[in-house]
């Protein structure tokens, strides 16, 4: 089992993943809501593999917001690795595997995923929740995009990270002076707030996801824009159809899901010392290390 795990991690590393880990399946099942648990999707799943990609140059963090929004996302790279990894496991170990679809489930709730890739990564120990709306951060790799593979191959789960890198010491200092960390201060939607305890750890995180989405999840604007375009002030049956969850998925697919529209604004990550100065996110530094 240990050899298989090493082979899987090696595959991930060779194909560009910064980090990989195995989440505890039982914990996933216990924490995810009904309908969104690994076994709801893949009943004979034995292991949940999570991998992360990312890494931006220092220059990339200086891009205008519009350019960051269009070019900052690297999730497609993660999906590609996970997609290949599922085949790799099947060929190498003969265990049925599946690349976990990263899309949303508009029938479940607002911006609720089919399966929580964030939960997998957190339980697999390759990210910890930050004050920036629960975006996962890693002390060495910073801000990553995650992808998951479910497999019938049994693998030893990893433990969550021992320590949470958020808030960084400089953020604690700012919080103590102003009551806000940089991500809270510079969020254009002002959707973040929270508290840091006396030891400099997260005490409370508050995230107004609806406000955040107004700035970034532009696919959600489509039905309203269309309704306004036809002056559908009284919600007609046609107008209501625009809001149908299945139709909403269509907006997502033709917009953010196609990689063509805003899906993140990155302003909280732009001011995050963990995201922007992660030493191992830089492949040259990583090789030297």
């Amino acid at each position: 089992m240990e050899g298989a795990k090493q082979a899987i991690f090696e595959y991930c590393r060779k194909h560009g993943a910064l980090a990989a880990g195995v989440a505890d399946l039982a914990a996933c099942e216990r924490i995810a809501p009904p309908g969104h648990r690994p076994r709801d999707l893949f009943p004979r799943v034995k292991s949940v593999i999570s991998l992360g990609v990312g890494g931006q140059t220092q220059g990339a963090w200086q891009l205008p917001a519009k350019a960051m929004a269009y070019s900052g996302s690297t999730e497609a790279r993660a999906y590609k690795i996970a997609y290949g990894l599922a085949f790799f496991i099947e060929h190498k170990f003969g265990a049925p595997s599946v690349y976990v679809p990263p899309d949303m489930d508009p029938e479940a709730g607002p911006r609720v995923p089919l399966q929580s890739l964030k939960l997998h990564a957190e339980l697999a120990g390759i990210g910890a929740r930050s004050l920036a709306g629960d975006i996962l951060l890693h002390p060495q790799f910073g801000f990553m995009y995650y992808a998951s593979v479910y497999t019938e191959l049994e693998l030893e789960p990893d433990a969550p990270m021992q320590d949470n890198p958020c808030p960084a010491p400089s953020c604690v200092n700012l919080y103590r002076q102003t009551g806000r960390t940089p991500c809270m201060k510079f969020c254009p939607a002002q959707c973040l707030s929270g508290e840091v305890d006396a030891e400099g750890r997260q005490k409370m995180m508050r995230y107004d996801m609806a406000a955040c989405a107004e700035f970034t999840q532009q696919y959600e604007a489509v039905p309203k824009i269309l309704a306004e375009a036809v002056a559908d002030e009284v919600r007609s049956a046609g107008g209501e159809r625009l809001l149908d969850p299945d139709t909403k998925m269509l907006w997502y697919k033709v917009s953010a899901g196609s990689g063509a529209w805003f899906a993140q604004c990155f302003e909280c990550m732009r001011v995050c010392p963990i995201a922007t100065r992660a030493p191992q996110a830089d492949p040259i530094l990583r090789r030297k290390a």
């Binding site: 508009p106 919600r235 604004c265 001011v271």
Partner: peptide, 25 residues
């Protein structure tokens, strides 16, 4: 979905477009 749509203000991404390149919110 109805409530989210009712509350959702369109055009908010316009606030982002002057950010970046050294300019912060």
């Amino acid at each position: 979905n109805s409530e989210e749509s009712r509350r959702f203000r369109t055009g908010q991404q316009a606030y982002l477009l002057d950010l970046g390149g050294g300019r912060r919110f």
